[in-house]
């Protein structure tokens, strides 16, 4: 379960729409972090045994464990590569962004 992203965030158009002082609703994301990435993690589900090492160490929390297979939220993955580096099964490959993935 990942937080919802407000893709077309509407900034205040009038004085009345301003937040009261510097306080607002928590958990508002108006843009993504995928642009930071040069390398993209790709999970080989044939090798993954869902040990969750990648899930626990991900600094961005982009791996989801709630479905039978782990899933990566590529909107927020920055491509740090901790998941691939720490994976005991070597089930995650870091692939250059933009290269074709089979």
């Amino acid at each position: 379960m990942k937080p919802k992203v407000v893709r077309e965030y509407k900034f205040p158009q009038t004085k009345e729409e301003m937040p009261f002082g510097p306080g607002s609703e928590a958990g508002v994301l108006i843009d993504v972090n995928s642009g930071w990435r040069t390398l993209m993690p790709i999970i080989d589900y044939g090798k993954c045994n869902k040990c969750l090492i990648c899930w626990i160490f991900c600094p961005d929390g982009v791996i989801s464990k709630e479905n039978p297979q782990l899933e990566i939220d590529y909107d927020y993955c920055k491509g740090c590569g901790i998941c691939a580096y720490e994976c005991p099964k070597k089930a995650i490959a870091m692939v250059k962004e933009g290269e074709k993935v089979e």
């Binding site: 510097p22 306080g23 607002s24 609703e25 928590a26 958990g27």
Partner: peptide, 10 residues
């Protein structure tokens, strides 16, 4: 019920 972020940066 509706968590907030206070004193945020502007």
């Amino acid at each position: 019920n509706n968590p907030k972020s206070l004193c945020f940066s502007a």
